[in-house]
Computed example of a mutant assay.
Amino acid sequence: MTRTVLIIEDNPGIGELVSMQVKDLDMQPVLVDRGDDGLERFRRGGIDLVILDLMLPGLDGLSVCREIRAVPGYVPVLMLTAKSTELDRVLGLEMGADDYLTKPFSVAELAARIKALFRRVDALSSRASEQAKAEEVEVDGLRIDPVRRRVFVHGSEAELTAREFDLLWHFACHRGRVFSRAQLLDAVWGYNHEGYEHTVNTHINRLRNKIETNPAEPRYVQTVWGVGYRFLD
């Protein structure tokens, strides 16, 4: 089936350029020039990838990304922006963007990022199939159900986001092994770009707040100073 790419970009020249590249990749582009209109189109369904500008009329890109992540199901988001500071990259990732491309960009790099995101989608589908066959993991009052993607701490359910669950499940499948932030980005997020490691810290902190009795002294997800993190062995 042909994949459909929603492009939310208010610059006509860039929008047409991205649309042409999407067509060259044998995908169907849908071009919208306002954030609110783009979000409305996304909610109608049938979108396989969102290419999203940060500065938009109607609704800014960060808000659009946040609303996309509130919709059940996973659709990758590639953010396009003229802003290039690390803070902007981290904000985009923390709102749920999967990757970040700074203007001006080359057509070849855009194509590479799109292909990489769809490889990640395929990998996640494979991971979901593996999880559907996996058994529950229970460690010291923490129970992880990979089939229903639910987590319980001493009998009470912890409401995790999809990314938080994937992060916890990755740890639980490799108990005692130490992972650097870069390794976690590659394994859980599906990419490893310099400067994005801060988003790992943010997700670790949020995960700890949901599953640890005392997040300041974590028992399950432990810090290995100077290296990274590991799960309780």
Rank of each mutant, 00 (worst) to 15 (best):
D60N: 12
G61S: 09
L62V: 05
S63I: 01
S63W: 00
C65E: 00
C65Q: 01
R66Q: 08
R66V: 05
R66I: 06
R66N: 05
E67D: 14
I68S: 04
A70P: 03
V71L: 09
G73K: 08
Y74S: 07
Y74K: 04
Y74T: 01
V75E: 10
V75H: 12
V75I: 03
P76V: 02
V77S: 02
V77R: 02
T81I: 06
T81V: 06
K83L: 14
S84R: 13
S84L: 11
S84F: 12
S84N: 15
L87H: 14
L87Y: 12
D88I: 03
D88V: 07
R89Q: 14
R89N: 11
V90K: 15
V90R: 14
L91K: 15
L91W: 07
L93C: 10
E94D: 15
M95H: 12
M95Y: 03
A97V: 00
D98P: 04
Y100C: 04
Y100A: 06
Y100L: 06
Y100K: 01
L101P: 08
T102P: 07
P104M: 07
P104L: 07
S106L: 14
A108L: 11
E109G: 10
L110Q: 10
L110V: 07
A111E: 12
A111W: 00
A111T: 06
A112R: 07
A112S: 13
A112G: 13
R113C: 09
I114H: 09
I114S: 05
I114A: 14
K115P: 02
K115M: 09
A116L: 03
R119D: 07
V121E: 15
V121P: 07
S125H: 13
S129M: 15
S129K: 05
S129R: 05
Q131W: 11
A132C: 08
A132G: 14
K133R: 08
K133D: 10
A134V: 02
E136W: 02
E136I: 00
V137G: 05
E138T: 03
G141V: 02
R143V: 00
R143F: 03
R143D: 01
I144Y: 09
V147G: 02
V147R: 04
V151Q: 07
V153E: 11
H154G: 11
H154T: 01
E157D: 11
E157P: 06
A158C: 06
E159D: 09
A162P: 05
F165E: 03
L168I: 03
L168M: 03
W169A: 02
W169V: 00
H170P: 12
F171L: 09
F171Y: 08
C173R: 05
R175L: 13
G176T: 08
R177L: 08
F179H: 13
F179I: 10
S180I: 04
S180G: 15
A182S: 14
A182W: 02
Q183G: 14
Q183R: 11
L184E: 11
L185S: 11
L185N: 14
D186W: 00
D186G: 12
V188Y: 00
G190D: 06
Y191A: 10
Y191G: 10
N192I: 01
H193G: 09
H193V: 09
H193M: 05
H193K: 12
H193C: 04
H193T: 13
G195E: 02
G195T: 05
Y196T: 09
Y196R: 05
E197A: 08
H198R: 15
H198Q: 13
H198L: 13
H198V: 04
